[in-house]
């Protein structure tokens, strides 16, 4: 049996209350999850279920209260291992750097010679369609273009695992569909494993091989849906009859949890 790319074993996260009064907040878990090499995995869940906390645990920004996380067999402890790249929902481009310098910034901790660095930056620019914007500042770009800059800055490090935290959350529906196509294309070109957090069921259904459905707090995986899409899919997959069935199943799993999340305790399936 092959080793999973990333493994979460009995992972739990509990937060102390800021005022120190009352019981601790059990935010997440226990979670068991194995991501296969090269798969596209998405997570959906109601607001406040701990999706972003899960991502922060996976990149070592926070340590779990219980359980372990291993990446390529090595435990993640307090720092993001080489080989993992992250794209956040908020615009994380550096306003004081040009697009080219933003992308090159991703290579800071890698001991590469100048020629190799330049080559990688040019490749990332080309891959994300940013060549003609290489020398402008992020403030001169749209939200979608700035997000591309952040993706390119992640790609330039050639990560083997890419984590995306609602990267299209701030974009309109059409742009999101097109950005989804680009992510699928990148996934095929790079062969990386992708872990996507999203609140959009259709986005998860369109992009992922498998979709994990999280419960309301404390967030646990209550269902894992296999989409069985072909690898060379794009946004036109929404026309497929099975697409509606996948989305419907996600919503069936999620509906009660979403109602609980907004305070409807007597919610029923």
């Amino acid at each position: 049996m092959t080793q999973p790319h990333i493994r979460l074993s009995d992972v739990e996260m509990t937060f102390s209350r800021p005022d120190g009064v009352g019981e601790d907040i059990h935010a997440l878990g226990p979670i068991q999850l194995d991501l296969r090499h090269g798969e596209f995995f998405a997570v959906v869940g109601p607001s406040g279920c701990g999706k972003s906390t899960l991502l922060e645990l996976m990149i070592g920004l926070t340590n779990p209260t219980k359980g372990t996380i291993t990446f390529e067999g090595q435990p993640i402890n307090g720092s993001c291992p080489d080989g993992i790249g992250v794209v956040f929902q908020e615009d994380a481009s550096f306003a004081w750097l040009t697009v080219r310098d933003n992308i090159a910034f991703g290579l800071r901790r890698m001991a590469l010679d100048r020629r190799e660095q330049d080559e990688r930056v040019e490749q990332a620019l080309a891959m994300m369609g940013l060549v003609e914007f290489a020398d402008v500042y992020p403030s001169q770009l749209s939200g979608g273009m700035r997000q591309r800059v952040c993706i390119a800055r992640t790609l330039v490090t050639q990560p083997r695992l890419i984590l995306l935290d609602e990267p299209f959350g701030a974009l309109d529906q059409q742009t999101r569909l097109l950005m989804g196509d680009e992510i699928l294309s990148l996934w095929r070109k790079t062969g990386a494993t992708i872990f996507l957090i999203t609140h959009a069921l259709d986005e998860a259904a369109m992009l992922a091989d498998r979709i994990g459905v999280m419960s309301s707090r404390p967030g646990q995986l209550i269902d894992i849906v296999e989409t069985n899409w072909p690898k060379d899919r794009d946004s036109r997959i929404v026309e497929n009859d099975a697409f509606g069935a996948v989305t419907a199943r996600l919503w069936r799993s999620l509906r009660v949890e979403s109602m609980k999340a907004i305070g409807k305790k007597d919610a029923q399936a």
């Binding site: 990149i59 920004l61 993001c80 956040f88 910034f105 800071r108």
Partner: peptide, 14 residues
């Protein structure tokens, strides 16, 4: 300073 920039710096191992 936007928290996401600080998170990005940590992820980059700065």
């Amino acid at each position: 300073v936007k928290p996401v920039l600080l998170k990005t710096a940590r992820v980059m191992g700065l």
